[in-house]
Design a protein around this nucleic acid. Structure first.
Lengths: 243, 243
DNA sequence: TCTTGTGAATAGATTCACAGCT
DNA sequence: AGCTGTGAATCTATTCACAAGA
């Protein structure tokens, strides 16, 4: 097995070459592993035990060369002339993503979105467990949801430590998000999934992923506008260009 | 530490190089324009009328060279030695994103998530208008939400045409998503925002953007695991390797 | 003097195309 | 015969660093 040069972005932890398992998986690859995992689970449910890169790529909606290169970063888990063993690959990807352990997740902000997230089935499925629900509104505190009482944000730090929460989902209004982030980071959390429409300011070493409805809509609008321009506007454009 | 997701699903139409005004704005740039727009709106609210690329970059959480290059794709809207006029830049980015017109959006699936989306304020803000809500469940149909009655999915095609819906948000269970996509595409929709955890199969020319909670959590888990490995694992690793 | 706008350099991701293994 | 794994080529994005202009 080979060893591509893997610089470690923000310093430290030189990895000894003696170690066989190469941890320098590209971000773009990591972002696609969940996709492959879902496709594989679909195949497994349909009783399929072996799959080629071509078929799996179609199921995941990507190019097969890309899929093979992505998987090659995890190791050599395929068989030439045959393909990949579905169950084995599910296991390897799950392990790589850290889904073989359970992550305690806290949701802060139990409005419409927070409720939707708490109820979201796939959430609890494998690897994740909702360990706490928080809200600042006394009217909401105490309400039961997915077998769990909503707690007041006053207890944020204590609960995070006591229940070993390592991932926090922020579903508060924009104005509260930064403050929540500051508090959970101070309590030791380094992974945040942010649904509030603000750019969170966080120290190095803290990972923030942002999910933003209006951003997504705006990107769609951009492309939609272009398509419209191309259809109705081409003649007008042509005129303008003739000048 | 931030990792922008930039998978581009489908579509792509060959563009002519002829035109002086180059409409070939990179996807990565388009994906950041909404971010800049939000940062600019924040500055505008605080009464700031001019901003340098450096300050705007900080507000948006990106590198200033990247911001300048992004903006340069839209045109030369800054003033050397001074910076950018906030209002003017807001207008230019809005125009580029197609937000100077109103897009009629339909939400299909009025469960917890659909409700959250419908109630999401920033949604209706500028450029977008919820024009219809659909659900397949007769118990939900007729319910009023944000001043609008939920309609049965039977009427999907008619309503889309009559109200000029051009963007559809799919917030149905996974099992229903593909079917909904097929129907709205047949009705002429070419922009879909998909919250269901499935890969939608769509023809060329249709843009799909996917928002996926469990994918985001899994990516966080990957990085969280790595951080844990680095801290607690180094000594254990060393032992294992000594063998 | 200050900041934009942009070539040039670097880094990263995707795709091609085929050697190597089953 | 068929499919994986991967160098090499290509394409895309980011960052540097500075000339040009206010």
């Amino acid at each position: 097995m080979h060893r591509p040069p893997v610089p470690w972005s923000s310093g430290q932890v030189t990895r000894r070459p003696s170690q066989a398992r190469d941890r320098g998986i590209p971000d773009a690859t990591v972002a696609r592993l969940p996709l492959y995992l879902r496709a594989l689970n679909g195949l497994a449910e349909r009783g399929i035990s072996t799959v080629s890169s071509e078929d799996l790529a179609v199921a995941a909606g990507v190019n097969s060369a890309k899929l093979r290169k992505d998987l090659s970063h995890l190791g050599s888990y395929g068989t030439r002339g045959v393909g990949y063993d579905v169950q084995y690959l599910i296991y390897q990807i799950s392990r790589e993503l850290g889904l073989t352990q359970d992550w305690a997740v806290a949701i802060v902000g139990v409005g419409n979105l927070g409720r939707a997230l708490a109820n979201y089935g796939g959430f609890v499925s494998r690897g994740f467990r909702v360990a706490a629900l928080f809200d600042a509104d006394p009217a909401v505190v105490g309400e039961r949801l997915v077998g769990m009482a909503v707690e007041h944000t006053d207890g944020l730090e204590n609960v995070i430590e006591n229940r070993g929460v390592s991932i926090v989902v922020i579903a508060t209004p924009a104005a509260a998000a930064q403050q929540v982030a500051d508090r959970v980071i101070a309590a030791g959390v380094t992974s945040i999934l942010n649904f509030a429409p603000v750019v969170l300011n966080v120290p190095d070493g803290v990972d923030v992923r942002k999910v933003d409805l209006s951003t997504e809509l705006q990107i769609l609008a951009f492309h939609e506008q272009r398509k419209a321009d191309r259809e109705t506007g081409s003649s007008m454009m042509a005129e303008a260009m003739d000048a």
